[in-house]
């Protein structure tokens, strides 16, 4: 791939041919404010917040403008600053001011952008505020949809289309009445939505927000325990509880994608019905017992049924190390090859 050199705000940077100005900037850690862009998706160029001035004459959107050798870009040109500040003011004037109780607070792209472009209370007070009042869609068990917070960046629509190919949602209506919608704006749970949550993680505001989300204290990188794809996950931990699962963007298998089970099906981990002590059946009922009691009984019984009177069924859900020891135990200790697992089911 050939390299080109462009200048952004006086700084010369090199970029790959075919990159957009925004990508080139981001690759060098330069921030150009934007709302509708997402690295996984094709650029849309709709929020108009990433406008820059090119070669001192043309206002263009950096997310769609391909780099060209010798190109000179200004992000601080007065005309550009005015357009993007007005644009962000328009969005904020159309957005509920409920930041403190908002799911996205602190993690909100709109907050970040508004701060960056210099939105002020005085500036905002000039505008007429008319927030759309559309009832929330709370039908999905894992996330809520709040259209009043939606900035119509279309990231969710493009995610559902370009990445998931599910197309549960699309733009509907037009102009100021535009909204992201299922057929007939029916509850999302009644659509073909597969609840993968890919749109939820990409929503720059809290128009799509996980239900009852808890911010984890720290994250642990691991592998999903459901199907054989082996998606990389980040288990969010708070105390001794898994409170969230995110896709691991660095994992080569899923590159961050997850399905509904992988992302939201984690509550079994801290489920109250988890077994926490050994149980021994006494008079037909299972009763709590100590490990010693249980192990003694097992050792005694297994010792009496060595050879082909014994069989072990390992599991396709436990680790390689677990499986290795179980087959070793069966073969080396119990003296039989009667070991299998549920691979076939």
């Amino acid at each position: 791939m050939s390299k080109v050199t462009i200048t952004i705000d006086g700084m010369q940077i090199s970029a790959d041919e075919g990159m957009t100005v925004l990508e080139a900037a981001q690759a060098h850690g330069l921030y150009i404010p934007n709302l509708c862009n997402h690295p996984d998706l094709k650029p849309a160029g709709l929020c108009r917040v990433c406008v820059v001035k090119m070669d001192d004459w043309k206002v263009t959107v950096s997310c769609k403008q391909p780099v060209k050798d010798g190109m000179v870009i200004s992000t601080e040109d007065p005309e550009v600053q005015k357009i993007r500040r007005n644009t962000v003011e328009l969005i904020v004037a159309d957005h509920p001011m409920t930041c403190l109780t908002c799911e996205a607070d602190g993690n909100c792209e709109l907050q970040r952008v508004a701060h960056y472009v210099g939105v002020t209370p005085e500036g905002l007070n000039r505008y007429r505020r008319k927030i759309r009042n559309i009832p929330m869609d709370r039908s999905n068990p894992f996330f809520d949809i709040d259209h009043s917070k939606c900035i119509l960046c279309g990231i969710c629509v493009r995610t559902c289309d370009e990445l998931q190919n599910i197309n549960a949602i699309d733009y509907a209506q037009r102009g100021v009445t535009s909204l992201i919608s299922t057929l007939g704006n029916k509850p999302i749970a009644d659509s073909r939505c597969e609840s993968c949550g890919e749109c939820v993680v990409r929503c720059p505001v809290a128009a799509l927000a996980p239900k009852g989300a808890q911010e984890p204290m720290y994250e642990v990188k691991s592998i999903c325990s459901y199907c054989g794809v082996g998606c990389g996950v980040m288990l969010g931990v708070r105390g001794q509880k898994v409170v969230s699962v995110e896709g691991d963007r660095n994992n080569p298998v899923n590159k961050g994608s997850l399905c509904v089970k992988g992302r939201y099906g984690y509550k079994f981990i801290n489920h109250p019905e988890r077994l926490s002590t050994p149980l021994i059946k006494k008079n037909g009922t299972l009763e709590e017992a100590s490990w010693d009691e249980a192990l003694d009984l097992i050792a005694e019984k297994f010792s009496g049924s060595k050879g082909d009177k014994f069989a072990a069924l390992a599991s396709a859900r436990i680790t390689n190390e677990d499986n290795y020891l179980i087959q070793k135990f069966t073969r080396a200790v119990m003296g039989t090859n009667n070991i299998d697992h549920c691979a076939r089911l």
Partner: peptide, 11 residues
Amino acid sequence: PESHVYGVATF
């Protein structure tokens, strides 16, 4: 996709 049909129709 039905969402697309609706999206076009309502436009």
